[in-house]
Design a protein around this nucleic acid. Sequence first.
DNA 1: TCTGATATGTTATAATTAGTACAAAGTACA
DNA 2: TGTACTTTGTACTAATTATAACATATCAGA
Lengths: 210, 210
Amino acid sequence: MKTLKIPEATIIRLSVYSRLLDYLHKNGVMIVSSGEIARGVDGSPAQVRKDLAYFGEFGTRGVGYNVKDLNEQVKKILGLMHKWKVIIVGAGNLGSALIHFKGFKERGFNIQAIFDNDQNKVGQKIGDVPVYDILELEEHVKTKEIEIAIVAIPARHAQEVVDILVNSGIKAILNFAPCVISVPRHIELRSVDLTVNMEILTFNLVVNKR
Amino acid sequence: MKTLKIPEATIIRLSVYSRLLDYLHKNGVMIVSSGEIARGVDGSPAQVRKDLAYFGEFGTRGVGYNVKDLNEQVKKILGLMHKWKVIIVGAGNLGSALIHFKGFKERGFNIQAIFDNDQNKVGQKIGDVPVYDILELEEHVKTKEIEIAIVAIPARHAQEVVDILVNSGIKAILNFAPCVISVPRHIELRSVDLTVNMEILTFNLVVNKR
DNA sequence: TCTGATATGTTATAATTAGTACAAAGTACA
DNA sequence: TGTACTTTGTACTAATTATAACATATCAGA
């Protein structure tokens, strides 16, 4: 199979398209055009078609796209045809907030456990997710075959925990600690950096005043 | 002043450089080279120099960069020479977590208030930040001259709240609601979309297996 | 003061991504 | 069946961004 390189921006947009398609499908819309998708995601029709064209032909000329079929195809592209086993490391404020975030389950991410080193939290539940001792992290990931870990701990311990995750055979990590993290090439890593996001805003505020 | 367009990727990197420079400065490091910065942020020396070159000459050939001076310059570029007045809308799990996140204050973002429509929360404090009724949002932003709002509420009400913020004269918005938000051109908007980030991971997991 | 070593700033080149235009394919209806 | 209309998929063009190479400036030591 030929896998030409796909721009990350395309993947981001596909994810947003898919959420719109979810919404349209839920509301009984059967057919949608690239123009309607574009309006729904604040993009251009050409961009929508080009993004889809990386992966095949999903529409009918003169008609548009079947909402249900297209959504299934897009979800398949995004790797959402099966549920993913997810854990969260860090039962602090952010970890707890992420447990309660509805969006994960809606999109097929099952949060199965949360890990912390605070013995007051270990053995409790947050929502309906059990809190385990972080000492059990490596073994748990291995035996339960966890695929994705969300790291929600302070920056000074993040690399250390990531190393444990890497050793335990995790496949992907979403990191919220505001620091640079290193992982071997075969592991997927993304960082959500809140202060960086804030600073992009302030940069734009300042330059736009010039 | 000439303001040629700056890639957003450059701004993201500058923000990361600055955090590294904070760290180096705190540890008494006086001089740093583009190569050392690159190692610290997992990038290339040429990229570091090019990013900085958009804004001027900050180093000394044959020597490197003065850590303190460069950090001041970079922070100035990022608009961090003064503190920013920030509010959070939504006192749910995520809003509360963001209140407790240390990184904001460290980088000059002062969270002054949090707004919610839950009357049980109104009048309370989260950390040391007071919770106000969301009905007071518009007036508060106007009179206190709040510059940045963080939106941490469910997607179905996000656009509605953003419209209030826009009317009240907010300058920038960081949105955590998983949906597409529209604002007038003169307002800065960024969205942190957790499921999109997860789906970039799963996409990469799936394609890398091929 | 001259020479070698080092690190920046900049120019040139390559790669990537987005935008435009249009041909191809389908629909509707006289 | 044929014609006008719609919407996709793609080839082409333009713009953006990253990479590499190099010229310039500084320092240290003889």
